[in-house]
Amino acid sequence: MTKHQQDAGAQAAMRRRITERCDQLGISREDLAAKAGMAPPYLSYLTETAPGFDPAGLLRVAAALGLSYQELTEGRADAAPGQQGRVARPALVRLTEEECWERLGGHGVGRIALPDAEGPTVVPVNYLVDGHTVVYRTAPDAVGACAAGDPLSFQADRVDEQLRNGWSVLLVGTAERPTPPEAAALDDRADQGRPWVGPARQLWIRVRPHRVTGRRIGTVDPSGHLA
């Protein structure tokens, strides 16, 4: 069996686990997407790709289902005798809009998602926070070179190495083209000693959000305390 076949089999098994867990909880895929803080098309896209593509997104799905990351992606192992119900479980906590912007900080690496006839196109980008918007720089002929008014989403997240906790922030909005003076100021910010991947002094796109949501991912210990 090739690696591609193994990956396809693992993804199919994970989708079955999601369906079975949704049936157990009495929720739809749309309900699950809402609990995980993502659009239903992105949830479908996420479960069709390798787990390494967006582990934070999968962790949010797992937490929304009351499963650990490993239980979602690899299957549930039997707990040791006497330990049933005493294992720490992941939990999702909603972030306020202010907490979302605090976690985004001033700059970092995130993803933009653009609508496509066959599903969302997701592209990694370096970003800057500019007021209560996010901006990124791209080439005029690149996938991310949106026209003003185009719908798009932006996501950034951080998860620890053990996939035990972290956060994820999602912006849903429309694209804007900064004015030449604004773009020049953004170029200066991007060039002030920060590593930057992508074309210099070309095209900036602003994500003007009309919805800002976020989740903090923690664990609930056997006594019921959220970490």
Rank of each mutant, 00 (worst) to 15 (best):
V169K: 04
G26A: 04
P55F: 00
G66T: 12
H225D: 14
P51H: 02
T2V: 05
R103F: 10
A145G: 03
N165V: 00
A200L: 15
R16A: 09
T179Q: 10
G26V: 09
V212Y: 02
G119N: 07
L114I: 13
S168G: 07
G110A: 12
S153P: 03
P124V: 08
A145W: 00
E118Q: 13
G57D: 09
R194W: 08
A12C: 12
Q6D: 13
L152P: 03
A227S: 13
T174W: 06
E99S: 10
P40G: 02
L65F: 12
D23S: 07
D23I: 03
D141L: 15
Q192D: 15
T49F: 03
G144M: 10
G57T: 02
V143Y: 12
C22W: 00
M1F: 10
Y42K: 08
A36Y: 06
P195W: 02
R201K: 10
R76W: 12
E99V: 02
E98Y: 11
T213N: 04
P120R: 07
D7S: 11
G193T: 00
L186T: 02
A156V: 00
R29K: 13
I18A: 04
D78H: 08
A80Q: 13
G193D: 06
V207A: 04
A190N: 12
E74A: 15
L95R: 04
V135N: 04
L114E: 09
G193W: 02
S153E: 10
D191V: 01
G110Y: 06
A117H: 13
G37M: 09
A227I: 04
E74Q: 13
D7Q: 14
